[in-house]
Amino acid sequence: MKQQVFKYLRVYGQISELAIKTLLEYRLNAVVQASFGFVYFAGLFIILQTVFAKTNSLGGWNKAELMVMLGLTSVNWGFIETFYFGNLRRFMMVGVANGTLDSVLTKPVSPQFLISFSQPNMGFVAHPLGLMLFLIYWLWQVEDSITLSSLLSFLVVMIASSIIVYTVFLSYAALAFYLTKSSQTIRALQTLADHAQYPTAIYPFPIFIGLSIVVPIAFIGYFPTVFLFGRGNSLLLSLIVSFAVITYLFSKIIWRISLRRYTSVSS
């Protein structure tokens, strides 16, 4: 087990090194890419500022709390984008259709690992790291004190949410085995993720459920923030943890079935 972990860490280290070299190959693009996340974040920030020019609270959240939600969402999404989202997008666009999956299947590493993490988007990594300062600033501004128990439940929800978001996205990526062209599925998830910065509960109930289960963007920012400010309860916490277990098992089964039916001819 320990050897396996070291093996994967070593592989990931080499993958990251290669990703940095590839990024620096086109330096202008790398600079723009690094600043691009901040431009986008500025847009999301302007939307929230405009909202709070019209009201003092939204769905029971004040400005500072929603800024924390925005910061947390952006940091989480930044890590998702850096580590695996681009890989899943690429896999859905060309992985099966162009036959590049074959080269993954013949390597002595888990195909799921290579498909998810083989090309990290290093141009994006400055984005979540930089936005942590924004998050810390607004956490400082929040009047509610964060207790130790809320912090602990927040950490549990963060871990569960990371598993949910990754495994649901991975399950959607398995559609590539069944559809010749499925890139818009993952792009739709990305587009809807722009709404992860708002309290999901402000939407009508069916949409709230949809954004929590079908497209789990509520787990990127909303649910972690709910627990950070001690607004969650033990029932919700256990539901989230159970959902993480279910999505994990579901993605495992989906990938096993999909890989079993995969055949390739001279790619």
Binding site: V51, K54, T55, N56, S57, L58, G59, L179, K181, S182, S183, Q184, T185, R187, A188, T191, L192, D194, H195, Y198, I202, Y203, P204, I207
Partner: peptide, 27 residues
């Protein structure tokens, strides 16, 4: 299917913005 998703993903996103502003209008 790709055409359908590509066409409506932004439409869905923009309609969510409409719902956001409706929530703002309420408060």
């Amino acid at each position: 299917l790709d055409l359908f998703l590509g066409t409506f993903r932004y439409a869905a996103s923009i309609m969510l913005l409409a719902l956001l502003w409706m929530a703002v209008a309420k408060e």
